[in-house]
Nucleic acid binder design. Structure first.
Length: 485
RNA sequence: CGGGCGGUAGCGCAGUCUGGCAGCGCGCCUGCUUUGGGAGCAGGAGAUCGCGAGUUCGAAUCUCGCCCGCCCGACCA
């Protein structure tokens, strides 16, 4: 038996098709993920949103621990002198650095302190103490922390003046090992995005124009949002010896020759939560992947009388422990609302499965299960309910990924020329894949001609399918272009 | 940072032009009736009108400065 409701009217929520940006802000606030604060560009992350971050943290932290990475904590404040040592890095970051210039009764400081926008400089400075010999390498460090970047235009989760992230910083005895590290972490990010967030990504190289300031090369994962814009969801950088030279992090190699370390850094931020919202949501609100959903299954009890209330409560108590024992994050919503209000509330909050339990279910020994993705209603016997729901959640996770993948396929075009590309972005969004010669000039021309379409990333193993879309010289790479967040 | 718009009860807004009792809807509290897709009735609480100066007998309303947000550009995870 299948019942579907298609009343697309949702109170107080802008429709996605009407105004995607407003829809996004509405969902983030009404689903209680985050909110504005009196502080310019800074948000408050509410428990429901923070729980998503905790899920992401747990997943990623487990991955890096499995490869021997260790968590550290480094200072929030970085003396100006230290900050200024790597020229390209300084140039890239100074426009958005916040400085502490004055402190309490001490008054004006002799030297300004940067509030970290990222920690390469302070970590490099400190790590030289701990790295003396090739036997000390590799040093695989990570920290979970906040950073501040003085952004002019902010949006909840996607771009705020302060945000949370993890930043990994690793030190190696040779280039090959560092380059391998960058790829290992990029693969972790792919797994985090695809297996946990159910967000299909392109993992690949950023162009020289788009790379991190101070990096030799940068790789990223990029995901498509439902408005057709791409989101850079995490980055992994190879620094060669750029930072170790600037901060004098060196070691004695096997021949007792002093050598600068080869370093990497990589980061993923609370922006991923914004990605989750925009990759999966619909006109009813959030849709959360079960593996990260703070509540995976919500139970809505239905009753009129005290007696029915007792019956329903007893019935739920019969299988609730078993469902929890199956490792399912279950919430029974006994709040003093009517069932319809609860349905809407939990759909807004993106809970994957809802169980409706009333006297009909009690009598039949069933629950009514409603899927957040399809919103179809089915009856499920309570026998081995934990096992059944686990299976349902796995299927949901897969279906969510599949839907996002199909959406991306439907929104990826291939073009041969700049004219075609410009024409495409006049009416459509999504990715456009095109052959490219590898020159920054040609990349810049795409950006100019389209008013802001940027290169996303590329897979160097994929050969260009024709001549460069701009200059007509032999293509080197097949690269994705998109409008981006 | 440039251009435009906005800030009045928890949320969404009217009132501002033309100065004169602080309003509406939703939400919230209490009670009763309700409860399978956002309940009904009755009563009630809640606002230094973003902040600070100024003009005026009198300012949500006029003037100046500042803060915050939104949209469009340039910059960025």
């Amino acid at each position: 038996m299948t019942e579907t409701y298609d009343d697309s009217f949702v109170k107080e929520l802008t429709r996605m098709s009407d105004d995607f940006d407003r829809w996004y802000t509405d969902v983030v606030r009404k689903a209680e993920l985050a909110d504005y604060t009196p502080v310019r560009g800074c948000m408050v992350i509410r428990p429901y949103g923070y729980a998503l971050w905790e899920g992401i943290q747990r997943a990623f932290d487990d991955m890096i621990k499995s490869s021997g990475h260790e968590n550290w904590y480094f200072p929030l404040l970085i003396p100006e002198e230290l900050f200024m040592k790597e020229a390209e890095h300084v140039e890239g970051f100074t426009p958005e650095v916040a400085w502490v210039t004055e402190a309490g009764s001490h008054g004006k400081l002799d030297q300004r302190l940067a509030i970290r926008p990222t920690s390469e400089t302070i970590i490099g400075t400190l790590m030289r103490r701990y790295v003396q010999s090739h036997r000390d390498l590799p040093k695989l460090t990570n920290q979970w922390c906040n950073v501040v970047r003085w952004e002019l235009r902010t949006r909840l989760f996607l771009r705020t003046a302060e945000f949370l992230w993890q930043e990994g910083h690793t030190f190696h005895a040779n280039a090959a090992e560092a380059i391998e590290e960058v790829d290992r972490i990029l693969e972790y990010y792919r797994v985090l995005a695809e297996d946990w967030c159910a967000m299909p990504v392109f993992a690949g190289w950023k162009t020289a124009t788009e790379k991190f300031p101070g990096a030799v090369h940068t790789k990223s994962i990029e995901a498509l949002m439902r408005d057709g814009l791409t989101l850079q969801a995490a980055t992994s950088h190879y620094f060669g010896q750029n930072f170790s030279r600037a901060y004098d992090v060196s070691f004695a190699n096997r021949e007792n020759v002093r050598e600068f370390c080869y370093t990497t850094s990589w980061g993923a931020t609370t922006r991923l939560i914004g990605g989750l919202v925009m990759a999966h949501g619909d006109d009813f609100g959030l849709i959360l992947p079960p593996k990260l959903a703070p509540v995976q299954v919500v139970v809505v009890p239905i009753y009129r009388t005290d007696e029915a209330h007792r019956e329903v409560a007893d019935f739920i108590a019969g299988w609730e422990p078993e469902v929890r024992a199956a490792g399912i994050r279950l919430k029974v919503d006994w709040s003093d609302e009517r069932p319809g209000a609860k349905y809407n509330q939990w759909e807004l909050k993106g809970v994957p499965l809802r169980l409706e339990v009333g006297s009909r279910e009690v009598a039949a020994g069933e629950v009514r299960v409603v899927d957040r993705l399809t919103r179809e209603k089915r009856q499920l016997g309570v026998n081995a309910l934990g096992e059944q729901l686990s299976a349902e959640l796995s299927a949901f996770q897969a279906a969510l990924y599949q839907r996002a993948l199909e959406f991306r396929q439907a929104n990826t075009a291939v073009v041969k020329s700049l004219a075609e590309l410009v024409e495409h972005f006049r009416t459509r969004a999504g990715y456009v894949s095109a052959p490219w010669c590898g020159e920054a000039d040609c990349e810049a021309k795409v950006r100019e001609a389209t008013g802001g379409v940027k290169s996303s990333n590329y897979d160097p193993d994929r050969k260009a399918e024709g001549e460069c879309l701009v200059c007509g010289r032999p293509g080197r790479y097949q690269i994705n272009f998109a409008r981006s967040y």
